[in-house]
């Protein structure tokens, strides 16, 4: 018998949990809505293609967009191949008792939980001080400070490291969905292991590799902490032309404009619009990753 009291409590429990769920939807709607509402009127073609002007109180965000694109492209070039190959190693070459594989798995799990700011510290300590300093000493005897400074190269490499686990994990997931039957078919035909990987495994996990890349780019485009002191610049009169140049970046631009601008209130429109651009960018990336992943999962269920 379901008594009236039980039914009442039940309604309460379900109601409260539904409210919590609703709250999440509300939060997402509120954040998105606020930013769209605040940035829509400022957003224009000119805003996207012009450089900031009048002491960053007017103009557009073109250099920040370019800087962000440079950053994620260089980060992907450095990180995606290494992550992909590492995932191939883990899935295809490493035995269950491989020390290297276990080390990598442990490190990847650890890395995924390390705060982004710690990556920034690493970039500073390792890339700038250690590697950059080393290059400078080798080239000029340390007389000239060229590589031992924040720049787009070190920022990209730092970001590549941050996104390495993302790549490894999603490529691994994709490789695992390649049916064992296909590997067996290839090997039984007298294909070698590498031939099997190159002709069967990799072509069949391309979507997953792409997903990994996109997720990494999305993560990289959204993180600011690692580049705070490894290469992002407050303002640059020109676009980066060398690896040793600093660069402007969307997320960093939002941070700077909203906390350290000379006239925070006057530039609200710019801040909102920049945030909107970043948000649209990450939305686009995440949705394409989700779409690709759902295709992989569908394949996995079919086989």
């Amino acid at each position: 018998m379901v008594t009236k009291k039980r039914r009442l409590i039940g309604a309460g429990v379900i109601g409260i949990s539904a409210i919590a769920a609703l709250a999440i939807v509300g939060i997402v709607a509120a954040v998105t809505g606020t930013i769209v509402a605040g940035g829509w009127s400022t957003l224009s073609w000119e805003f996207l293609t012009a450089a900031p002007s009048e002491g960053m109180t007017a103009g557009g965000i073109f250099p920040a967009i370019v800087g962000t694109v440079f950053l994620v492209v260089m980060m992907s070039i450095a990180g995606v191949p290494i992550g992909t190959v590492t995932a191939i190693y883990l899935c295809e070459y490493a035995g269950t008792r491989s020390v290297l594989a276990r080390g990598i798995r442990f490190a990847v799990n650890t890395l995924a939980g390390v705060p982004a700011i710690v990556f920034g510290l690493f970039g500073l300590g390792f890339f700038i001080q250690f590697v950059g300093g080393g290059i400078d000493r080798a080239l000029t005897g340390g007389a000239e400070l060229r590589w031992a400074q924040p720049n787009i190269l070190w920022a990209s490499l730092t970001m590549a490291l941050l996104t390495l686990p993302v790549v490894i994990i999603s490529v691994e997931e994709a490789i695992k969905t390649v049916p064992q039957d296909l590997r067996a078919a290839s090997l039984a035909l007298g294909a070698t292991k590498w031939q099997t990987i190159r002709r069967v495994v990799i072509p069949n996990s391309l979507t997953g590799i792409m997903t990994g890349g996109i997720l990494a780019v999305s993560r990289g485009a959204g993180e600011v902490a690692p580049i705070l002191f490894t290469g992002a610049a407050y303002f640059l009169p020109h676009l980066p032309t060398a690896l040793s140049d600093q660069f402007m970046e969307l997320g960093y631009h939002i941070y700077i404009m909203s906390t350290q601008s000379t006239d925070v209130d006057a530039t609200r429109g710019i801040q909102y619009a920049t945030t909107l651009v970043l948000l649209l960018l990450t939305f686009l990336l995440n949705f394409s990753a989700i779409y690709l992943r759902s295709r992989i999962r569908a394949r996995q269920q079919r086989s």
Binding site: I27, A221, G251, S258, T259, T282, N286, I290
Partner: peptide, 21 residues
Amino acid sequence: PTIEILAGFPSVVIGFFGLVT
């Protein structure tokens, strides 16, 4: 998907929302 969107918000966007709104 709503949760995925929330998880995909860059922290600087959340920071901005917190700061201004």
